[in-house]
Amino acid sequence: MTVFIKATHASKTIRKKPIIKDLSLEIKKGGIHAIVGQRLSGKTAVLKLLTGLWLPDRGEITLFDQQGTVTPRDQSVHIGAFIDQPVLYDRLSASENLYLFSQYFGYYDIKSVEKGLTDVGLRDDALSKTSTFSFSMKKRLAIARALFLQPPFVVLDDPFTGLDLAEQHHIRQLLIELNTYQHTTILLSTPDVSEVEDFAHTITLLRDGRTLETMSTLELKHRLSSFIHLNVDHAAKATFILENNLNITDFQVMDLQTIRIYDTSHPVYVIVQEIVKGGIQMNEVYHKQLDLEAYMAGTSRREPR
């Protein structure tokens, strides 16, 4: 897959507060990409930068189209976005909201409005004023607004929070269909990796306005599955043995005595045997399951890959 949008060391400061410190990522054309981060990690700001709603103070964000490279703001006609809160015109009905939005794109087709509302389960509420809508209905309408003009690039900010399980499933299926049949490039943000792990192709971890790692969903699942925790008297020497004697490179040095080995292809006793043979004192060893926050905390202490 070719690169569709690329951010290179982009940063953004709002009211003297650095919101995005270092944004570097690539989103492949035709893929589903998720940005995962906790609250206040800067997910919404990243999406605002990638859609051109904000311009970076430093670094650059480039969108690759047939004419060459452009900025996202120049290509807003090809971007369907729902970012931050589901803001709507309250005195207008659901269909009027979509009608109004399509008019700004210089395009109107009653069928696409109907289809957009049907896709998110709001067909029966098409003529109801959005001031009477619940949060979930407003959110689904905002998602419909991002999708109904069938843009090649869709950006959704935390689309599942506030929806019930059935609605979440429905939106997930809708996104999968869009990606499969229309090859729409989809970018999502979420605080919960479990919301996207079943259908996102790649995941970028974001923490404190910095992109930590971008990897395939499979790889992240693998990293979160389990690791071997080692506590030795000399971590640097132990890593030398891991790399040279056992050919293990997928590990992380937590401090002077602690190492986490994500490559679990070697049995624990083999690892222990080799380290002890190297004259290193082994204090502690065990298998551990890691949650995403703990993993990200560990990742942020080392250099981004």
Binding site: L53, V77, I83, D84
Partner: peptide
């Protein structure tokens, strides 16, 4: 105030 302006700013106009 309602931030509907950001929706308008995301259009090609």
């Amino acid at each position: 105030k309602k931030d509907t302006i950001s929706v308008l700013f995301s259009t090609p106009v």
